[in-house]
Design a protein around this nucleic acid. Structure first.
Lengths: 168, 168
DNA sequence: AATGAGCTTCACACATTCGTGAAACCTCTG
DNA sequence: CAGAGGTTTCACGAATGTGTGAAGCTCATT
């Protein structure tokens, strides 16, 4: 696979890739992701390998190994990357598992939603529901619950939708 | 309504409110909102008034009027707050319109999704779809399209869902 | 056990972001 | 048209966040 990676990387294509990575990462940052994890994710998504060592990521993104270390830890924790180890080798491999990639994304969103629900529930308990602001909080709670259901439903439907779109 | 506002605000309740505002704002920040807009939104949501002057917001949140100015501008632009003016008064009034509050939230999310789609589409055009990374980008594009449809559908269903939850 | 490649941790310098205070600017009242 | 209440703009100081370099650590190989 190294042969392929090298073959595609004319300077121009490499530069175009990095420009895209930077643009995509910027949008991800606007949604709350940190700069370095956003870049690593965008890079792993858009480049052609299906597994990356930390060194390859550092090299490809032109950043220090230290920066990669922190970024992949977070991405692994969220579930965007899976850490693997080939027996008899010293370097970790990071792979973004194609099949479940975007279901994992929604799952992460769902966890964020859960945090919303928790905070709002605590607020209602603390501040009371029987006043104008309290009623708004209750409605907020109900909305987040609804949105959670909608997203959970979307996750289960995505695999078949994905197939349909691939064919249609 | 001023009477009500003052009446509820024992020091303890006021402090509890501000604690909640800070917690809620923190979660909003993690989703990409800026600190001050997040606080203002949380405060306007959780406190009991249904309209706030900039001075009231500054006072309630213990921050400078300058900070409010920037925050409300953004919130108005997103659609979370509506700016009003009572005839014969010198101060603007900011109201979060209860009815459409959370549909506006999803609408904002949809605009963010749109930005994703645009960036990814440009990336595909620039980098090509006929390679491993390109295929992932195409799938990404399709996923965002799907998610957009799901959210748009959720927005239209929320009003009736809201009623159902209120009664059930 | 010793070696060395590779990953991680830590302290630091740089950059960015945030909220304030003061002054300018409207806009309604008298 | 003068005056004042209220909002906005601007430059600044403080705080926060970000990525790097160097040292430390882990683990497969010899």
């Amino acid at each position: 696979m190294d042969g392929v990676t090298v073959a595609e990387n004319t300077d121009a294509e490499r530069a175009a890739l990095l420009r895209f990575v930077e643009r995509f990462a910027l949008v991800l940052r606007e949604s709350g992701m940190q700069p370095m994890p956003a870049r690593v994710f965008a890079y792993a998504l858009a480049d052609d390998a299906d597994r990356y060592t930390a060194a390859e990521l550092a090299d490809g993104l032109q950043v220090s190994p230290a920066a990669i270390s922190g970024a992949v830890r977070q991405l692994v924790q969220i579930g965007f990357l899976v850490r693997e180890r080939e027996p008899g080798t010293r370097s970790d491999l990071y792979v973004l598992d194609d099949g479940q990639l975007w279901t994992r994304f929604v799952t992460a969103e769902l966890q964020a939603l859960r945090r919303f629900e928790d905070v709002v529930a605590a607020g209602i308990e603390q501040l009371g529901a029987d006043r104008p602001g309290g009623r708004r909080l209750v409605e907020t709670q109900e909305f987040f619950a609804f949105l959670g259901e909608v997203l959970a439903d979307a996750v289960t439907r995505w695999p078949e939708e994905r197939e349909r779109r691939r064919l249609g």
